[in-house]
Design a protein around this nucleic acid. Sequence first.
RNA 1: GGGUGCAUAGCUCAGUGGGAGAGCACUACCUUGACACGGUAGGGGCCAUAGGUUCAAAUCCUAUUGCACCCACCA
Length: 882
Amino acid sequence: MAGTEMPTVYDPGTVEAKWYGYWEKNKFFHTAVEPDREPFCIVMPPPNVTGQLHMGHALDNTLQDILIRWRRMQGFNALWLPGTDHAGIATQAKVEEQLAREGLSRHQLGREKFLERAWAWKEQYGNQITNQLRRLGASCDWDRERFTMDGGCSGAVLEVFLQLYNKGLIYRDYYITNWCPRCQTTISDIEVDHQDRPGHFYYIKYPVKNSGEYIPIATTRPETMLGDVAVAVHPGDARYGHLVGKNILLPVAGREIPVIEDEYVDPEFGTGAVKITPAHDPNDFEVGMRHRLPQVQVINRNAVMTGEAGKYAGLDRWDCRRRLVKELDSLGLLIRVEDHTHAVGHCYRCSTVIEPMLSKQWFVRMKPLAEPAIRVVKDGRLRFVPERFTRVYLNWMENIRDWCISRQLWWGHRIPVWYCGDCGEMTVAKIPPDQCSSCRGKKLEQDPDVLDTWFSSALWPFSTLGWPQKTLDLAYFYPTSVLVTGRDIIFFWVARMIFSGVEFMDDVPFREVLIHGLVLDALGRKMSKSLGNGVDPIDVIESHGADSLRFMLVTGNTPGNDLRFHFERLDGARNFANKIWNASRFVLMNLYDFDSGQDLSRENMTLADRWIYSRFHRVAEVVTRNLENYDMGEAARVLYEFIWNEYCDWYIELAKPRLYGGDSGDRAATQYVLADILRGTLELLHPFMPYITEDIWQRLPVHKGRTIMKAAWPVPEKWSLDQEAEGHMELLMEIIRSVRHIRSEMNVSPGKKAEILIEAPEDGPREMIQKWSGYVETLATGNVLVQPALAGKPDQAAHAAVGGVEIYVPMKGLIDVSQESSRLARELAAVERDLAKVRDKLSNQSFLSKAPAEVVEKERSKETGLSVKQMSIAKRLKMLGN
RNA sequence: GGGUGCAUAGCUCAGUGGGAGAGCACUACCUUGACACGGUAGGGGCCAUAGGUUCAAAUCCUAUUGCACCCACCA
């Protein structure tokens, strides 16, 4: 318990090792329904089971842990529900990699065996990330840990699919979707990452049949011309009007295709004529539907040219492009090639260029689901923090398109639809049906596809609480209190949870969404595997401690903004932890003879005691308010400043002489205040730095065997707010600072005691200064003499004027009068500059009449203070002979 | 094409209507009975540019410039 057992340098490793297991074993994180207590609930964004904790997770979970620990201390029944995500594409890719190392492919293995491998993989690696979250200090209820593919969540997925299907909100269609040739699956529109890429505009002659004319076509993807089925021009375009209805002899392919008119064509862009390839372009697909054109597929699922591509069959799409352009050129059909930068769709997982591809897929009809999801946000039933993300959300929801939910993967929730081999009818069911719902045939085959991973995460806030059962958990904890997540998954996840919650629970999934930014590297780039610029949170925890990492991630940045990762800032956080450690070490070292049963009598409090209580009172209020506003960074900053600049720099320093030099009553009282403020401060800091605060808190005499996690959040009593004490301390601090300034300027050696003459008028703070002059003596190193009026002003003395008080530091023979004069002259000039500004304001009639009274009053008192200061410095200067 | 964010000390960033701030870096001094991962004192900024609103603007409005990001089917 005693501080002497504490090393002088804080070692996060040994401290952190002590506490997580203790918390978890004692079930301090566990929460059950308690109807008389108010719930506070956060569901954790489930990290992928493939996962390695990254800085984004560290930030996200630190923010959540702060909120949860704080609310728990406030007395809420606080549930933080953790879990992991099966992450279809990502996990399947990992398992396939593993197989590849054994020389196997998933197809060789077969679906069933492959899934066994995937589950084994999940069992082996799925816990890695949750253990890393433990290192971070995350106080989530592991008893309730869930997985998107566990029985409950899978049941919820089936139920949702069925309900949406029965409402006509899920349909299957032959449509053009985004195909990733590498992942070998369709992906949804938001999974396509559009990046501007330098490319080319190829101008190609399309000869009109039986005419010497040709239509110039500009395209960025010449290889798709092999699948062209028409050329479209804008209706009424004078250039091409006479050709509409005629046929084009499609170069190379040698097919005939019609010239048609369609509003889609922009006559201003390119050549005003567009080649139509319904099988390989979403716009052309639409045009093709309107004109009942055929769909000629020339590129297959491996991005290789099909048999329809004639002699180009079997070539990779880029190879085909190169060779085809060459051929067109040699045929004299290539007009020119221009550089052209355009947005190219890439797979967000693997960055492969997406190929628009025709296939039968499942979709969710979004419009009917979006509307109520827009309403709950507009009505304010669900609030985004920061508020600006509301627009991002609404904008997307209002322009939403149907969601392609089928994936050609094996790892995931298999689509609960069976096709009849006899009549072709679909049967949708939660349990595998034994006969066709239409013809009762037995030849049923289940749809081979699985659902988009986000389909199950969309249900997370209620599937994890027991839905579709009507559980007590759901009734008690839903809607959850707040969702904390990064701005990069507002569309992927937040939006989908909102419409799902509204649809199936008839209520918002959470009342507030706290959006934070991304963690960038020191150069402001996104941390990514390919750049190799990621910083591993576990490495940081090992070098600097989890508390430091948490503190660093939370400070020095505004809600919603991105955050750059700087090791200097991490060092700063570690130094802060060390400061706390050593301040506590000092306090604990001095508590060996402390009678913890004793209470402090307020009458015996010193000015410093009253001041530190008052400051603590304000800090507790501000920290609480900032947390209420989700302003964790500001709360942390306020605590940092209080601990370092007030508790350590002033209070502890003032406590020392009273601890060692006073009587036993003084010592006891000082011990009491030191420990009491330390206790309260640790409690305020605990949500941010859980380990170090627990460790120190339990060392305090009365806390042995209790946990800070269950301590009550500090709500200071009214008496502790003491404006007078704050004012008095401020004046004394100014006096001390000015004496120190003088000493430093005059090169007085730090150990040497100075004579400090303070001239304070009788009607002013004289008595107060006299009473607490010991503070000045200790902290400015000197002997203080306070007098109403000095008989003779010492000429061999440095001078300062502070708050209506004159300070002289006599220095026999040390004062260089001219040096002192110029120092004072500089100070006088500064004072006069300020004074002029203030007087300017006060002579302005409109300021006096329009500014609020307290602002005017403030300026008046500033003027008084400054003019007193000006006069005394001027007098002093005159005395010195200037 | 539409939208958002950012621009403040050498660096990284707070502050968002009434006295320009912090951390790091820098200068000088200090091993003072918690801490050199420390202490004390200090230097350093027309708060991007141009207008406007206001008694008062780094802070609100408009425009401009630069940087970053998001959305969008113009071949």
